[in-house]
Write a protein that binds this DNA or RNA. Structure first.
Lengths: 337, 337
DNA sequence: GGCGTCCCTCAAATCGATTCGACCTGACCG
DNA sequence: CGGTCAGGTCGAATCGATTTGAGGGACGCC
């Protein structure tokens, strides 16, 4: 048995001839290689990384940002012989707080993409199980690894860009505020109930630049249609803003579409900026002014954090830089009449 | 130990008080529930379904069709306590034919989405391991379960719709033809080298309607930009077609965008039809004429096929119906001058 | 008191691979 | 010819749970 084991795993000294003899015998006996379950039990490793995709899968997968990070992650994990197990995030508040997979599935490390609200019950479940955890875009905690970007600085740069163009009436369209994901103008007292870390940080970037938005519009998800709704509302109301800083590219492109529908020229009548740095072919010929984040690299950084855990290192915290890309959707502020 | 096992699994007679005692003791000892690996080994089941997403993840995930099917699948698998392990498909021809995960990962059933070319090496690997397999949109084989839709009939209906509107010069834009995914006009001799089942079937639908396309344009993937390229090429050449039947909605929407760019009116100058029945908000105000396939239901059918395997039933074959949805992108053929 | 039912304890087998040490065999070298 | 070493065989322990069967209190009921 020891020899057979060596023949398959290749770890340890074994003559090529013996190896072949073992393999032939295996074929004759219809033995198709070691049973992964036995191997995993012995090794104490499953080779599986559980990835919680922020939302219901449908919503998460409609978001190119998650997709590209996931892609980068899988590319990094593949060579390490690690597989990705999809775990649905908490979709409806009526059901159980965490997916049963999170409690029972075999996994060596967990990754929480789009990392959640501050008091995430998922973190508790993982801590209880003793599963090392990597948090993407969440609030760093002492015992979990984090990967994030400079949301706050990026948004500040984008806002400053608008200021330099002479804009003074700047509105902003944000990612979801909280678990109930309500849509619409945010009254100032709700700013305290903002438990979605990423939204908070990007919002802080705007105020960091010294701007008090003329309006803050929260959306239920980062989707074009919600951007459109926001754009229509903000641009057809009184005291029209001359610039709208959006917290994602999908929202921003929705706002651009809304402006076009309302007969407004971009950027002559209204400037629009985004966040993420996606390719948006259907916006042609416009190119969105946006804060570019390194998505594939972010996925790779998550993979690295996973690898670190598996090699025994402690949790790491990593923040990736962002850059401002100036496109055709921002321009000098119009004369306010 | 037996009692402890019963306390956690709940299978078998156990008094509530004892159960609580066990749970308390577990908490005191920092025991966080049964180790999944031990359980899996004993049970002989991993509770994992390996899902091969057609392409590289990035490409697969940019395709809303795969996403929605995957979403339907996960929704069905969740209640069965099954998890989805992502397995990248064969992306580059230089690398290994199948991902190592497919050979070594623990999984009870495998699903091949967007089910591949006729001579798929992945099927061979799975057969060798004895893993039951569900094929989505592939060529049914005796020992694998299949889930598909009536591609051929659907495309036939769409083509007949164009015929009824008086079109005679009908071109078609197809999904990839083969593994090398070349882009452009397809010479007639390449029709024999079509080893992508889904492309073949949808193409057959066109000829079933009695139409010989004036041009067949193959794309490298189902993406808006490839549709745009195809549209520009087909619509700016000589002998412009008056209708273009596309094999996917994303391709069709690219063609619509191309037509708009070229100053052609849709549907007055050119009619465009798609396939899949996606929501395409950015195409507004147009609504694509398309063949609607039940995507979530397809995912559920795959989940059912998986469940069937696990309950000991043999492979099943299922074909779901499609319906033609008439939108605003098809209209009467213009007078040919 | 006798009997049956519940529920618990205890011991042991099993799932399938990995890994360790002891031991044996040739081959090769000095 | 003795010593070393690479490589192979053999036996046994281990990973952690599930499951089965035998046995034994406790309790209620007649």
């Amino acid at each position: 048995m020891s020899t057979a084991s060596l023949a398959f795993s290749g770890a340890g000294p074994i003559a090529a001839a013996t190896r072949q003899r073992v393999l032939d015998a295996a074929a004759a006996l219809d033995y198709s290689g070691p049973n992964p379950l036995g191997r995993q039990l012995r090794r104490g490793r499953s080779g599986i990384v559980g990835v919680v995709v922020g939302d219901s899968l449908r919503r998460a997968f409609r978001d190119p940002v998650s997709i590209q990070v996931l892609d980068g992650l899988v590319s990094t994990l593949g060579p390490l012989d690690l597989g990705v197990l999809l775990i649905p995030g908490s979709s409806d508040p009526s059901g159980p707080a965490v997916d049963p997979l999170l409690e029972t599935a075999a996994m060596d490390v967990a990754v929480i993409m789009w990392g959640g609200t501050t008091d995430d019950p998922m973190l508790g479940a993982l801590r209880r199980r003793g599963t090392p955890t990597v948090l993407v875009e969440g609030q760093p905690a002492p015992d979990v690894a984090s990967v994030g970007i400079d949301d706050r600085g990026g948004m500040r740069r984008a806002t400053e860009h608008l200021l330099e163009l002479g804009h003074t009436r700047i509105a902003t369209v944000t990612l979801p505020f909280d678990r109930c994901r309500s849509e619409g103008l945010v009254p100032s007292d709700r700013l305290d109930h903002l438990d979605w870390e990423i939204t908070r940080r990007r919002l802080s970037g705007v105020t960091d630049a010294g701007v008090t938005p003329t309006a803050i519009w929260a959306t239920p998800a980062s989707l074009v249609e919600h951007g459109r709704t926001a754009g229509v509302a903000l641009l057809s109301g009184p005291e029209r803003p001359t610039a709208i800083a959006c917290q994602s590219d999908l929202l921003a492109s929705g706002v651009v579409l809304a402006a076009r529908e309302l007969g407004l020229r971009v950027p002559e009548d209204v400037s629009v900026s985004g966040f993420d740095g996606l390719d948006l072919p259907w916006l042609a010929p416009d190119v969105l002014t946006t804060v570019v984040q390194p998505l594939a690299e972010k996925g790779a950084a998550v993979g690295q954090a996973v690898a670190d855990f598996l090699s025994g290192a402690g949790p790491s915290v990593r923040e990736l830089p962002v850059t401002l890309r100036i496109g055709t959707t921002t321009g000098p502020a119009p004369d306010v009449s």
